[in-house]
């Protein structure tokens, strides 16, 4: 059994840890609120943009409208934009999205390259000897569209240059405070995604006549589609940030609860040890006194 002193030290360190995790939990709680606000604010625009893309997709012969909408036969090279956090201590947040992604591309015969957004993702990918072609770490805590538009642009440019035949986006969808879902979506060439809720009840209702384009179709689509692609990346990053904070908050709450419980148990143990040592001391004294009395008598 450890000594009373050791136990005291242990209790103190557990209490210190619980204070740290409680502080982290409070910080994450306030950050998650802001992040959720930001993500819901931009959702409206993203949904409207999505609708426009769907209408474009439903145009007769959409395959030939623009290179970014065109399916390529026998895709050989795949690019994955994977969004993770810069920091750990967020429960399973970083590992979940990474595992999900690796699992998804495990059976692909094509060459898979990665763009890592977030330090954790980059490190984990490099450790697994994956091909990381670009790294966007240390994004600001609340990125503006202009901070991340470069990511979408890079993906579009490389796709158009023929370096990659498909581009995927892997991020964590913020469902609610306790549930975040890793999602993988194909970004380019654009495809309809049956998972997406905005899809439901949209688009099927009307028959679409062909669009008139102003300015010329080529020029207009060349402006609109890359922009919307960058926007999807932006939206995914906002969702991921909200998810990260929520995951961290929950992880830290669990850690705090565990620390409090542990310190309670340790305290009980410590009390026992202390009582035991007092009893021992008393016995010693009593024994000593008795021996003295005997020798005197």
């Amino acid at each position: 059994m450890p000594s009373a002193r050791e136990m005291r030290l242990r209790i103190r360190s557990v209490k210190n840890i619980s204070q740290v995790t409680r502080a982290l939990q409070a910080v994450s709680a306030s950050k998650v609120r802001k992040a959720v606000q930001a993500v819901t604010a931009t959702r409206a625009y993203a949904e409207q943009a999505w609708k426009v893309l769907i209408h474009l997709y439903e145009q007769p012969g959409h395959n030939s409208l623009h290179p970014l909408l065109r399916e390529r036969e026998n895709p050989r090279n795949i690019l994955v934009v994977i969004i993770t956090g810069d920091r750990g201590l967020a429960g399973a947040y970083n590992t979940n999205i990474l595992k999900h992604t690796l699992q998804f591309f495990k059976d692909k015969t094509q060459q898979v390259s990665y763009i890592a957004v977030g330090r954790k993702g980059r490190d984990l990918l490099l450790r697994r000897r994956k091909d990381v072609v670009a790294d966007f770490s240390n994004l600001p805590a609340a990125p503006a569209f202009s901070d991340v538009s470069a990511i979408g642009k890079l993906a579009v440019d490389d796709f158009l240059a023929g370096k990659y035949d498909e581009v995927y986006l892997a991020y964590t969808d913020f469902v609610n405070m306790i549930s975040q879902k890793p999602v993988i979506r194909r970004l380019l060439p654009f495809e309809l995604d049956s998972d997406k809720q905005v899809m439901q009840g949209l688009g099927q209702s009307r028959i679409h006549a062909a669009f008139t384009y102003e300015p010329e179709m080529e020029e207009l689509l060349g402006y609109v589609i890359p922009r919307f692609t960058a926007l999807q990346v932006y939206q995914a990053i906002m969702e991921s940030i909200a998810s990260e904070h929520a995951a961290r908050m929950v992880a830290m709450r669990n850690a705090t609860d565990n620390a409090v419980e542990l310190s309670g148990l340790l305290q009980l143990e410590y009390n026992k040890v202390r009582q035991q040592s007092i009893t021992n001391d008393m016995l010693d004294i009593a024994g000593g006194a008795e021996a003295l009395a005997k020798s005197a008598g």
Binding site: F211, T212, E214, V224
Partner: peptide, 14 residues
């Protein structure tokens, strides 16, 4: 400038 009235034909513009 474009004036858009109800029942306009589909159009996409910047």
């Amino acid at each position: 400038e474009m004036g858009i009235l109800p029942n306009h034909s589909p159009l996409l513009s910047t």
